[in-house]
Amino acid sequence: MEDLKNILAEHPFFSGLNEEYFALIVGCASNMRIDAGKIIHREGEEANHFYLIRSGKVTLQMMTPNKGPLIIETLTEGDILGWSWLVPPYTWHFDAKALDLTRMIALDGKCLRTKCENDHHLGYELLKRFADIMMKRLESTRLQLMDIYGDRP
């Protein structure tokens, strides 16, 4: 548990969080190891966790009927995976699969969102951090949509 606490404390995602909240989050954390090729979650499944990737590589992918699975994005060491646990109806929108052997810290979102409802200050702290991640992903997505390397940029 001490080990987990240190890892979380060093991650920029949790920087500036007060000790009380930090302890609470550590209480919701657990280590996870996913073998290469294993599915972490599938589109439509209940979303009750988010993950901090410690090592390895995760692909977010989507099934297309005629082309097979399309990779939307890859996430690696230091990235946060998943925000569907935060927004109703709490279901995953993409498949997540470990491309390599992946070690992550799983955080119990179901437990956290109840706590956030009861303590909006905690809710705000978490939401602020996820908003930053969402903004970066949205920015990347916009750049990808522009197809700047394509024929008609």
Partner: peptide, 19 residues
């Protein structure tokens, strides 16, 4: 190396280069 989009089978990164 990273690409904007890929089908499975690509073992590299997917996402913009700034990532």
């Amino acid at each position: 190396v990273t690409v904007d989009r890929a089908m499975t089978g690509w073992r590299g990164n997917v996402g913009v280069v700034t990532n």
